[in-house]
Computed example of a mutant assay.
Amino acid sequence: MLKLFRLAAAAGLLAASAAQAVVISGVDIPLGQIFAATQTYQNVPLGIGDTLGGYGKIDSINSQAVSSLCSGCELTYVFGGYTVASVSSSEIRFSGGWLKVYAGFGADNDFTTLNAGGSAGDLAEASNGTLLLSLKGHAVDAAGNTFVATGVGIGTTSPTGFSTGLMDVDTAAGGTANTYFNTNGIAAVFGGGAADVQLGSSFTALQPLYPAECPGGGACLRGSSNVIATTAAVPEPETAALLLGGLGVILTIARRRLR
């Protein structure tokens, strides 16, 4: 019987390790640890009650260009709802927040910050396509804030620094990849348990091409961001049924041998 249980365990491990990636809405998403690098464009909140928002494009996942993960596509995102809770000359803290990732193919593979439509055009291009992932803020401190930026010139129109935050999958907002990212893989002290995503970003200069066109503010920052997450396979119903059926056969044999 011990051999049978060892066989069942081995079969489970084999099934778990068989897939190293999963195709979601046409995008080949790696399973396990994920590190994504992005370009970010955002407004500049100046005081308590102001809201941070913006958009961007994902350039690579695990050092692989997005173009190698899907054919003729782009991955873009929009974010908003981060409300300034406190601000000083060196630090600003935000509460709330949301972020949505989109996969664009064909005509929806169109994101550029150089179009004539200004920020409205940028936002439209960053939010078209298939909704891939929806996230919401996860607390990083006892006050329930979700995002913290530190640096110099904070509270002015030309800050420079770094920011960090945590997020959870927002299952109520939709997203074809939500289930795969909903793994609680990021340790967190606050917010009722582990988070699903860790964010980090840098912001260094005003966007010189059109400094007044970011939504929700009088100036626009550009920078880079990184996203750390853990993805896990979600067995298809047919696969799950086969695994459960096989386990049932093994347990039935084991019971018969015990009689």
Rank of each mutant, 00 (worst) to 15 (best):
L4M: 07
F5V: 11
R6C: 08
L7R: 13
A8P: 00
A8E: 09
A9G: 13
A11E: 09
L13T: 12
A15M: 10
A18R: 08
A19S: 13
A19M: 09
I24Q: 12
I24R: 12
S25F: 03
S25M: 02
D28K: 15
L31Q: 11
Q33H: 07
F35V: 14
T38P: 00
Q39S: 13
Q42E: 10
V44T: 15
P45H: 10
G49T: 10
D50Y: 07
L52I: 06
L52F: 03
L52R: 07
Y55I: 02
I58D: 09
I58N: 06
D59S: 11
N62D: 12
Q64N: 12
Q64I: 01
V66H: 07
C70A: 13
S71F: 04
T76Y: 00
T76Q: 03
Y77I: 05
G80L: 04
T83A: 12
V84G: 05
A85T: 14
A85M: 06
A85P: 00
S86I: 03
E91Y: 00
R93D: 12
G96E: 10
G97A: 10
W98C: 03
L99N: 14
K100T: 04
K100W: 04
V101C: 08
A103L: 09
A103F: 05
F105R: 14
G106F: 06
N109R: 15
D110P: 01
F111W: 14
T112D: 15
T113D: 15
L114F: 13
S119W: 05
G121H: 13
G121E: 14
L123G: 12
A124D: 15
E125T: 15
S127Y: 03
S127Q: 14
N128G: 15
T130Y: 01
S134H: 06
S134V: 01
G137A: 06
V140G: 03
G144M: 05
N145H: 11
T146H: 11
A149F: 04
T156M: 02
T157D: 00
P159D: 07
T160M: 14
T160F: 13
F162Y: 13
S163G: 14
T164K: 05
T164N: 08
G165A: 10
G165L: 07
G165H: 08
G165W: 09
M167Q: 10
D168P: 02
V169G: 11
A172V: 04
G175A: 10
N182F: 02
A187T: 15
V189L: 13
V197T: 07
G200Y: 08
S201H: 01
S202W: 06
F203Q: 14
A205T: 13
Q207M: 09
Q207V: 12
P208F: 09
L209D: 14
Y210G: 10
Y210Q: 14
P211L: 06
P215Y: 02
P215Q: 08
G216E: 05
G217K: 09
S224Y: 11
S224M: 05
S224K: 09
N226Y: 05
I228N: 07
A229I: 04
V234W: 01
E238V: 12
E238R: 04
T239Y: 00
A241D: 08
A241F: 06
A241S: 10
A241Y: 04
L243H: 04
L243Q: 09
G248T: 12
V249Q: 06
I250M: 07
I253H: 01
I253A: 08
R255C: 05
R255Q: 06
R255P: 00
R256H: 03
R257S: 01
L258H: 03
